[in-house]
Simulated scan of single mutants.
Amino acid sequence: MNMHALETIELEMAVLARLVKSMTSDLRNLDKSAYLLLHQLSSEGSYGVKILANKLHLDISTVSRQTASMEQKGYVCKVPDPKDGRSYFYQITDLGLKELSQYKQARLDKLEELLNGWSDEEGQNFGQLLKKFNQRLMEK
């Protein structure tokens, strides 16, 4: 890839990160970390802190802090590990599902507004390229 393309991508990624943060600043129910963690539990089921940390590419202490905060808010609860009574998994609660759903819908509404006028093909291509880029980031 040529240097001009790399420089354009680098700058646009920085702008994107800032703008996405400001785009969701009025959606105060969930922060980004809670959203991704709840999404993980909702889509894949219960996990312990260590597995969540690996899946989210975070350290265990960060996930422990986030899950403790979400447990206080009633978004997740601890369930005993049936294989090992000394450990536990986190599971999303009905309230967590409700908050996740509302937050996701608000984000989708904003994206729909921003992408108004884009063709279905442009949306598909953009989504696939973002997915490809994110998968590459997760490999590193």
Results as ranks from 00 to 15, higher is better:
2 N>F: 03
2 N>A: 02
5 A>T: 05
10 E>H: 14
12 E>G: 07
14 A>C: 12
14 A>Y: 13
14 A>M: 15
14 A>F: 14
14 A>D: 11
15 V>M: 08
15 V>H: 06
15 V>I: 08
17 A>K: 11
19 L>W: 09
21 K>P: 03
22 S>V: 08
23 M>L: 15
26 D>R: 10
27 L>Y: 03
27 L>V: 04
27 L>H: 02
29 N>Q: 09
30 L>D: 01
30 L>W: 00
32 K>C: 10
37 L>V: 00
40 Q>D: 04
40 Q>H: 05
41 L>V: 02
41 L>K: 00
42 S>P: 01
45 G>C: 01
47 Y>Q: 04
48 G>C: 03
48 G>M: 02
49 V>C: 07
50 K>V: 08
51 I>M: 11
54 N>M: 15
55 K>E: 02
55 K>R: 11
56 L>C: 04
57 H>Q: 10
58 L>R: 14
58 L>F: 08
58 L>K: 12
58 L>T: 05
59 D>V: 07
60 I>E: 14
62 T>G: 04
64 S>N: 05
66 Q>P: 04
68 A>S: 13
71 E>N: 04
73 K>S: 09
74 G>V: 06
74 G>Q: 07
75 Y>D: 00
77 C>A: 14
77 C>H: 15
78 K>S: 01
78 K>T: 04
80 P>I: 00
80 P>C: 02
81 D>G: 00
81 D>F: 02
82 P>E: 04
83 K>P: 00
84 D>Q: 00
84 D>Y: 02
85 G>S: 14
85 G>W: 10
86 R>V: 02
86 R>T: 05
87 S>W: 09
88 Y>R: 08
89 F>A: 00
91 Q>L: 11
92 I>N: 01
93 T>W: 03
96 G>V: 01
98 K>D: 08
100 L>T: 01
101 S>D: 06
101 S>R: 07
101 S>I: 02
103 Y>D: 05
104 K>M: 06
104 K>Q: 08
104 K>I: 03
105 Q>C: 07
105 Q>G: 03
106 A>E: 05
106 A>N: 04
107 R>V: 11
112 E>A: 13
113 E>C: 13
113 E>D: 14
113 E>A: 15
113 E>G: 09
114 L>M: 09
115 L>N: 12
116 N>P: 03
116 N>A: 11
123 G>S: 09
125 N>H: 11
125 N>I: 03
128 Q>M: 15
128 Q>A: 13
130 L>E: 08
130 L>D: 09
130 L>H: 06
130 L>F: 12
131 K>T: 09
131 K>M: 13
131 K>R: 15
131 K>D: 11
131 K>N: 12
133 F>T: 10
134 N>T: 05
136 R>Y: 10
137 L>G: 07
138 M>L: 14
139 E>P: 01
